[in-house]
Design a protein around this nucleic acid. Structure first.
Lengths: 352, 352
DNA sequence: TCGAATTCAGATACCGATTTCATCCGCGCA
DNA sequence: TGCGCGGATGAAATCGGTATCTGAATTCGA
């Protein structure tokens, strides 16, 4: 083999230039280049700058992170990025990230604890500086693994059973209660509920809040009017179908999230059920076209993007503070937006 | 200061265990542990396994990546994750990732070339193995920087001016043409267009396709019926308002994406314009509630999630193949879904 | 003009893994 | 019993940066 020293030293085929290449070109040591990069005063600054420019050198963040212990990246675990709510949350997170140099590692968990676990381990290996997550269930163990490793974790929208974590939540119970009271105040008595999984915070709290709201008005939810579903469009579709098959059918329904609401509406639509004449309809979470449907939808709305923003701020704080023991919990307000999909009950209840 | 050697060596306060800790505990060398981790036959396998178990050791991916040159992560650049289309694309990407051990670094570019540039540089420093992006404009320079560094890049939904890249696109022109022909076939002549930015592929192609479609039917778009907007909801709202102020107003409109369509619908709604009696409405991209509005919306639909899946597959291929020169271009079909928001023109055109 | 204080540069250890290379061990066979 | 061989092992180099330590050069005051 002939000598290829020229190739070796001068034109590293596809190799990204390293600090060594810069040092050689500028005629200084790598330590000096490193100092230049980090703002220390360097006499030959001009030479170093030119060398960096000429080679289009970009310091390898991996090497930096390995030494410094900080990767400047955070993990975000959401059940479903195609759910507009979580897309909004992620957008909120992203908008705060932007100010710094952090990156966002996004993971879909598909509501699966198994996947949540494996993804958490991967993030652990990748040494993210912090994690924002909406756990799959309240019994998720992944967060505990993370805490054992002292990775800061902030929960968005959902709790887990064990405490000692930071949270950014919304007042699900109050929102659902408002929805219940609204329906009752319109004279409804045959009221149905399409719930989410009861081992998730929003599922449980919205369910409980709605029942509470009814009970406060002296009503109970009949078993046949209760459908526990899965927060998915298809689940909402099926549930609505089952509800409509009961005799007599309900005159009002509350659907516990946006995707199930879409599914339920599709079902009502396909059965030709008129809203609100035959069925009053309220759901949790606003939807892009909610005010443009006919009738426009009455919903329990909440600040989705803000949930993301606040969660990221909390995580920032947590990452800076290290092991501050006090935990923080932010609970945002929901708002009932009454549009046209709810109306007085068709057969007025007898007055007391 | 007193000696704290016990702390140093025995109870590493918050430090994650390293391969060295495992080696010490198992009484072997780090090389052996490494070999065990990578599947080489090791005599003391049981001891090593126990040590790993006991310490809950997880190899530091940073160190691995530094040595191997592969980070097992890819960057994804989208203009707006809150746009349901891009959320679907990302979900598609994610679903392919899942099979392997890759992670996804998500970046919002907000349609800004400046932000796109800075984010690309960050990803470069993070040494991602590949990048999927929907460039902000066709003149984006970020991809060229990436190519200079030999990072595989696949474009989703949008092109850039320079060639030599892989693409997963949809046939925007055909979709827009179909929309145009559909409106003309209903007898419309006063047809308006709300376009996206013309320096983006979908903006340009849908615009051109729609004009072509009209021209093929012997129609021209009147200047006052043309609004070039920005793919955002607010932009669509404004544009629709301006269109409705013309005299005479158009009897039909085509809106070039989902968010602008929502904005435009809001405007029409607030002005009390009846659809389809006074205005036929078609838009590009399906929407979650599109078939539940009254009337249900006629749209040009396309396989969003599939675009993500295919793009990720292409990137996988590209990352495996290295510097295969041949580029691939996948163009998916659109589909016109005629629902109720388009109807015959109110004043029939005189027959030939 | 000399000595002390201050800067700045270079050599080198280090972060936590992988990998090469030389060594060593046990085993089979003569 | 001795030799050779295959396979497992440990020491050490390496990836690309940062940080410490030491030595040299500069500056300043006396």
């Amino acid at each position: 083999m002939k000598s290829v020293s020229e190739f070796d030293s001068d034109s590293p085929r596809h190799r990204a230039p390293t600090i060594k290449d810069v040092a050689a070109r500028a005629g200084v040591s790598t330590a000096t280049v490193s100092r230049y990069l980090n703002g220390s005063p360097v006499r030959q600054a001009a030479l170093v700058r030119d060398a960096i420019e000429a080679l289009a050198f970009r310091p390898n963040q991996l090497a930096r992170s390995l030494k410094s212990g900080s990767t400047r990246s955070i993990g975000v675990l959401v059940p479903d990025i195609a759910n507009p709510f979580f897309a909004d949350v992620v957008k909120g997170i992203e908008s705060v990230l932007r100010t710094g140099e952090y990156s966002l590692l996004l993971c879909n968990t598909d509501e699966s604890v198994e996947r949540e676990r494996s993804v958490s381990l991967t993030l652990l290996q990748k040494r993210v500086d912090g994690i924002l997550m909406a756990p799959a269930t309240e019994q998720s163990e992944a967060p505990l693994i993370l805490r054992a490793r002292h990775v800061p974790v902030v929960f968005v929208d959902r709790r887990i059973a064990s405490d000692g974590f930071d949270y950014v939540l919304v007042d699900n119970a109050a929102g659902a209660r408002q929805a219940a009271e609204h329906l009752v105040s319109l004279g409804h008595e045959r009221i149905a509920l399409i719930s989410g999984p009861l081992d998730t915070t929003p599922g449980r709290e919205r369910h409980a809040g709605f029942e509470q709201g009814l009970q406060a008005c002296g009503l109970e939810i009949r078993p046949e009017y209760l459908q526990v579903s899965d927060f998915r469009e298809e689940g909402g579709y099926q549930a609505a179908f089952r509800l409509l098959a009961t005799q007599p059918p309900p005159t009002a329904m509350f659907v516990a999230n946006n995707l199930m609401a879409i599914g339920a509406l599709r079902a009502l639509h396909s059965l030709g059920v008129r809203i609100p004449e035959e069925m009053s309809f309220v759901s949790f979470d606003d939807l892009a076209l909610a005010e443009l449907t006919t009738p426009p939808l009455t919903v329990v709305s909440r600040p989705s993007t803000e949930q993301g923003v606040l969660a990221m701020r909390l995580l920032q704080f947590r990452m800076d503070q290290g092991d501050e023991p006090a935990t923080r919990e932010i609970v945002l307000e929901t708002r009932l937006i009454v549009r046209g999909s709810t109306a007085p009950a068709p057969v007025p209840a007898p007055a007391t």
